[in-house]
């Protein structure tokens, strides 16, 4: 197994107030790592420090190490970094425009103009996100007319079109019905052979269903990380036990 992302003593401050500290964890290549924890436990901040979206917000200071392929994310060219580490947001955010334009957005940023190559990428990405069959006849209609679940799969396809190695999902199913959620989880299982996933979720059961390992964050700290089965059946920390069994959070 290859270490894909490594955090050592990662600490993030917002206006001098720590929101993440003492984070030591490793994400292996081709695994699905779930991050669970109550609101304001720093899960999203962790994702946003990996792809450096945090830098766009004022008042953030990051210290410690955060490595992608053994190189600190700070040293990566930020655009290249974000192409390697894709992100799916909590609410599906299709850009105004057609389904095709949405999926082709990333490839076009890279300078791919040829319609034939773009069409190929769009089809491949939509198939990978299990959306192709539903939208193949209306690629050039507005993405905003899709249902919530379809929109989120569109966002997944849009991220995959950039050919990332790591895909971070920030509560991707929080606004979706159970069937849409199941479709996205199915997509995750199929895709895991080729990608590394970090799945932040509020839904403890979802973490149990789809992930290989689970990390539990609480108040900006990593309480415990381990194989998902162990976290859910024999957690080492009392707080983890309380959270996964629904006594807190």
């Amino acid at each position: 197994m290859v270490e894909k992302i490594v955090a050592r003593d990662l600490k993030v401050m917002v206006y001098k107030k720590p929101v993440l500290q003492n984070i030591n964890l490793t994400v292996m290549a081709q695994e699905i790592l779930a991050i669970i924890g109550p609101a304001h436990s720093g899960k999203t901040t962790f994702l946003r420090s990996i792809n450096r979206l945090l830098e766009n917000q004022p008042g953030f200071i990051r210290s410690g190490e955060l490595l992608l392929d053994n190189r600190d994310v700070k040293q990566w060219d930020v655009d290249l970094l974000r192409r390697r580490v894709g992100m799916i947001f909590a609410t599906p955010i299709p850009l105004p425009g057609t389904i095709f334009d949405n999926v082709a957005y990333g490839p076009r940023l890279k300078g791919i103009r040829n319609m034939h190559s773009l069409a190929e990428i769009v089809e491949k990405s939509l198939r990978a996100a299990f959306l192709w069959d539903e939208v193949k006849d209306r690629l050039f209609s507005s993405a905003l007319r899709l249902s919530g679940g379809q929109q989120q799969r569109l966002c997944i396809a849009r991220t995959l079109a950039v050919e990332p190695e790591v895909v971070m999902m920030d509560e991707p199913c929080s606004g979706l019905d159970p069937i849409s959620t199941a479709q996205i989880e199915q997509a995750l299982q199929e895709l895991k052979a080729n990608y590394t996933f970090i799945l932040v979720t509020n839904n403890v059961k979802q973490a149990a269903r789809v992930s290989d390992r689970t990390a539990f964050f609480l108040n900006g700290e990593l309480v415990e990380i381990g194989p998902t089965a162990q976290i859910f059946t024999a957690p080492k920390d009392k707080r983890t036990d309380d959270y996964v069994s629904g006594r807190i959070g």
Partner: peptide
Amino acid sequence: IPYQFREVSYSLGGTKSQTVWRVVLPN
């Protein structure tokens, strides 16, 4: 224009100027 649109563009590897040209100005 919602800030999230810009974040989507950044998260896909868009630079600031690409984001302005392709997301902000058209919308």
